[in-house]
Amino acid sequence: MDLRDLLGTELPIIQAPMAGAQNHELAAAVCGAGGLGSIPAGMLDAQALEAELSAIEALTDRPYNVNFFCHPTPAHDPARIEAWHQSLAPWFAEFGIDSSTLPSGPTRQPFDDTMAEVLERHRPALVSFHFGLPSPELLKRARATGAKIASSATTLEEGLWLQEHGVDLVIAQGLEAGGHRGIFLNEDLTTQLGTFALLPQLVDALKVPVVAAGGIADSKGVAAAHTLGAAGVQLGTAYLLCPESRTSALHRAALQSPRARHTTLTTLFTGRPARGIVNRLMRELGPLPVGVPAFPLAGNAIGALRAKTEGLGLDHCTPLWAGQNVSGCREVSAAELTRELAAGWQA
């Protein structure tokens, strides 16, 4: 079974949800071309999610995906936040930021009852999760809408755990993928595999379909994933330069520069490992420094620095999320790109 059978799409292509870099316009364009567009909800509240789902449904009647984070929100730790601010003190001084004025709440919201209520009104074809799965009660509500359920696995153990907990689809997120790692059973980054090492292991071990994600940038990569048994592919970085995306000018410039060849995993921006293009903050503090507040509390201090530096035309503190392979990232319409990618599957 591939995505077309499971979700009713014309093409086995999923546009990866990319919070901050897209909205319903990109998702609807991919849906219109026959793929599965995705709405990222990780940075939305229920009211904003309602608006996004209403907007995509006004543009297309085709299947779409809604993606949620399902992390536990950590307790506020003043001592750890203060230590983090001390680490950033030279940056605060350079860019004129008073750390005493920074907010302290979470910058991203997990799936909860208010989000479930929105799903019950809109009933998307697929609901996908990152960082495992929500509570059994919340998962039951999502499934009761008629949606298929998916989540990301970064190891064979995570894939088996997800299958045991009733998902309909596993997304094999290889180490090459841009943005946040879906790692959830432990925090050991040495367990992480590349896409084409992870994919065949999951395909062999699981009874549910597996989608390949990470490092796939063109039709040849799509064809390779198909050969290894994938039920479809999920791509994010390739869509970042499409006119329908909301990628910032600074991010677009970085993607089109030689700098994009050097990405790394970093916890600096949110507290969880995520892959992005190396910039000044990552070089000077190190991509995985000790003492970063738990996800998603790290984002407040970095957000203030980001706003100030971006206002100066600098990407020093901007999370330039991107996968290891930016070769397919081009300024073409999302519909054209989706059809080009699908040609690899058909071949």
Rank of each mutant, 00 (worst) to 15 (best):
R4A: 11
P12N: 13
P12W: 12
A16M: 05
M18L: 11
G20D: 10
G20V: 05
N23P: 00
E25H: 14
A28V: 06
A33E: 02
A33T: 03
S38M: 01
D45V: 11
A48G: 08
E50V: 10
E57C: 05
L59M: 12
D61H: 07
Y64G: 01
N67T: 03
P72E: 09
P72F: 09
D77T: 14
E82M: 13
A83E: 04
Q86W: 09
L88M: 15
E94P: 04
S99R: 14
T101L: 13
T101R: 14
S104P: 00
P106A: 03
T107D: 01
Q109P: 00
M115R: 00
E117K: 13
E117P: 00
V118K: 03
V118H: 05
L119Q: 02
R123T: 06
A125R: 14
A125D: 08
S128D: 00
F129L: 03
L139I: 02
R141G: 01
R141V: 00
R143H: 05
R143S: 01
A147C: 04
A150T: 03
S152R: 05
T155M: 10
E158Y: 02
L160I: 13
V170S: 04
I171W: 09
A172V: 09
A172E: 03
L175Y: 10
E176G: 04
A177H: 06
A177N: 05
H180G: 06
H180F: 07
R181E: 04
I183T: 07
N186S: 13
E187D: 14
T190N: 14
A197K: 13
A197H: 09
A197F: 15
L198E: 01
V203R: 03
V210A: 01
A213M: 12
I216M: 15
S219I: 13
H226V: 07
H226L: 13
T227F: 14
G229E: 04
R246F: 08
A249R: 15
L250W: 15
Q256N: 07
Q256T: 10
P258S: 07
H262Q: 14
T270P: 02
R272V: 11
R275Y: 07
G276Y: 06
G276V: 08
V278A: 10
V290D: 15
V290I: 15
G291W: 12
F295L: 12
N300F: 15
G303N: 09
A304N: 05
A304I: 10
A307R: 13
K308M: 11
T309Y: 12
E310A: 12
G313S: 12
D315S: 10
D315E: 12
L320D: 01
S327C: 06
G328R: 06
E340W: 14
L341Y: 04
A343H: 14
A343T: 14
